[in-house]
Each structure stands twice: as C-alpha cells, then as structure tokens.
C-alpha cells in the first residue's frame, strides 16, 4: 500500500492516483476492462440521441422479425426494435448502481473504520447484527423491501445502498484492525490527536485502497442483483428498456427468435465482465488479494 507513497518523488496524492491508473491500464485485464466500462458509460449517456427507433413504438406487422437492414437486431414480441432497446437497456442499471455503490462504500466504510478503531462492546454487538444480516440471502432482503415499498428507482437505490453497505462495514473494520496496530497510529494517538483526526489523517488513507477495490466489486454485484431483480419482474417496470427484463421477455420466444435474448445477454455480460476485469487489475495494482475473500 505505502511502497509507492514512500518514494519522495511520488509523494503527492495526484501523482499516486495517476501512477495507479497507469498501472491498471498497463495490464491487459485493466485495459480491456476500462475500455468496456467506458464504452458502456458513454453509451448510456448518449444513447437517447443515437437510437434508430422509439423504444416503446410497437409494430404489430413486424413482430419477432429476424435481423434485417431496418432492424439490425430484429424485433421483439411487440414489434419493438431490439437494437434500440439494447442500446438504452443499461441506463437504469448504471444510474441506480452508479449512485448506490459510492453511497454503500461510504457509509459502510466509515462505520467499519470507526468501530474498527473504537472496538468495545458496541462493536461486538454490531458485528453480530452484521453477521445476522449477511446470513440472509440478498434476494430475500431486497424483495421484502421492494414488495412493500414498490419497484421504482427511488426504492431500489436506497435498498441496494443499504444492504450492500453492510458487508463493507466488516471489510473496512478488518482493514482498520490491520492499520490500528501499526506504529504511526500509536504515534498519532500519543501526539494527542482525537478519534476524528486519527480516522481522517491516519486510517482513511490506508484503508482507502481496500475500499476502492471493494467498491469496484460491489458495483458488479449490485449490477448482478439489479438485473436479476429486473429479470424476476421486481426491478424496472415495462415499457422501460432494461437488459434483465428484456431477457425475461424474450426467453419464451428463444427457440425461433434467439436475437431477442442474445443482444441483451451480450450487452449485460460485457459490462459486468468489464467491471470485474477493472476491479482485478485495480486490486493487483494496489497489491490487494481479492481472491481470498468470500463474496459476502
């Protein structure tokens, strides 16, 4: 973690960030991953202006048509253009997970660092509650809230941010324990710095690497959860285009109209793989072994 920062020439934070970025892009996995992610993010932003058709325009005369000059990826069971819907289908997912991921990492991270430093009885109790939450499958926790409060993004964002922040508490706490035992933290305490100062100046910079990698992983898991919920019919509501929902809709016609499934499958897979390749490269660049951690 600190090897890079130790050399005087690279002491500023900006230079270190650039160094890590260079390291990430120098790895094949990082270069491919970042390209995929950047491609999807840019596409999500500009897609409303480049799509060939209206995503909800139905055409009863051309239902489930194969790929053609007019419809590059064919049409779905309502005669809507599949290409248009694939291009637009990641916007909701990226918006929701793009907000929920940083929120989850920040609240989980801060709570974890705080209790990692303070410890004590309250910390014990909190960890048991975290364990208890982790022992329930994600899908159950999310569905109960969604069924109660509805399926809009104003429910999905806080729900994802809440549940995916819980495991971060544990990871940040463990990372903090590793740092707290080091001399410079004792030194800071001996200098008479308060908890907040110790967290801000000593712990946060050292736990940040772990949290960054954690955030990248959590992003991919959130996308997985979001698209799974859409697939099951608990996420984005029609006619909004969403990959998970599109796959669910097109599955019934798979035997004679496989293009309806393949388009969203490739789009969703390439985004998730891109995020994971980036996370892998980032973990390697920062010297964090993420393979030894369980996906909690």
């Amino acid at each position: 973690m600190t090897e890079i920062a130790a050399t005087p020439a690279e002491n500023t934070r900006l230079q270190r960030t650039l160094g890590v970025l260079r390291d990430v892009t120098a790895r094949p996995s990082g270069a491919i991953g970042l390209t995929l992610v950047a491609f999807h993010v840019i596409l999500a932003i500009i897609s409303p202006w480049i799509v060939p058709y209206d995503y909800k325009a139905m055409d009863s005369l051309s239902m489930l048509n194969g790929p053609s000059g007019a419809h590059w990826l064919g049409t779905d069971h309502l005669g809507r253009d599949v290409l248009t819907r694939v291009l637009l289908g990641g916007r909701e997912a990226l918006l929701v997970t793009g907000i929920a991921t940083p929120v989850a990492v920040i609240w989980g991270g801060l709570l974890g660092i705080f209790f990692g430093l303070v410890g004590g009885r309250l910390d014990e109790v909190l960890m048991r509650v975290v364990d208890a939450f982790l022992s329930l499958p994600w899908i159950l926790k999310m569905l109960v809230l969604i069924v109660t409060f509805g399926t809009g993004i104003e429910v999905l964002i806080p729900t994802l941010a809440f549940f995916y922040g819980i495991p971060v508490i544990r990871i940040a706490r463990a990372a903090t324990h590793d740092v707290v035992a080091r001399d410079f933290v004792s030194a800071a305490r001996a200098r008479g710095h308060g908890r907040i100062t110790v967290i801000r100046r000593e712990l946060l910079p050292n736990v940040l690497d772990t949290l960054m990698v954690e955030g990248a992983m959590r992003w991919s898991w959130m996308l997985l959860a979001f698209s799974s919920l859409s697939f099951l019919g608990f996420g984005v509501s029609p006619p909004t285009p969403d990959w998970g929902l599109m796959i669910a809709d097109a599955r019934g016609f798979m035997s004679f109209a496989p293009w309806g499934v393949l388009g969203p499958v490739i789009a969703l897979s390439s985004l998730i793989i891109g995020i994971n390749l980036t996370a892998d490269a980032l973990a390697k660049a920062l010297g964090i072994d993420r393979a030894q951690k369980a996906p909690v």
């Binding site: 698209s227 697939f231 796959i247 969703l268 897979s269 793989i273």
Partner: peptide, 14 residues
C-alpha cells in the same frame, strides 16, 4: 472470472 460474474439467469438462458 466470466463464470462467476455473469448473472445466473444469463448463463442459464444461454
């Protein structure tokens, strides 16, 4: 990496 990151419903569908 592919097998563990692609959602189950996607790999199942394929």
């Amino acid at each position: 990496v592919f097998a563990m990151t692609i959602p189950e419903f996607v790999s199942a569908t394929v």
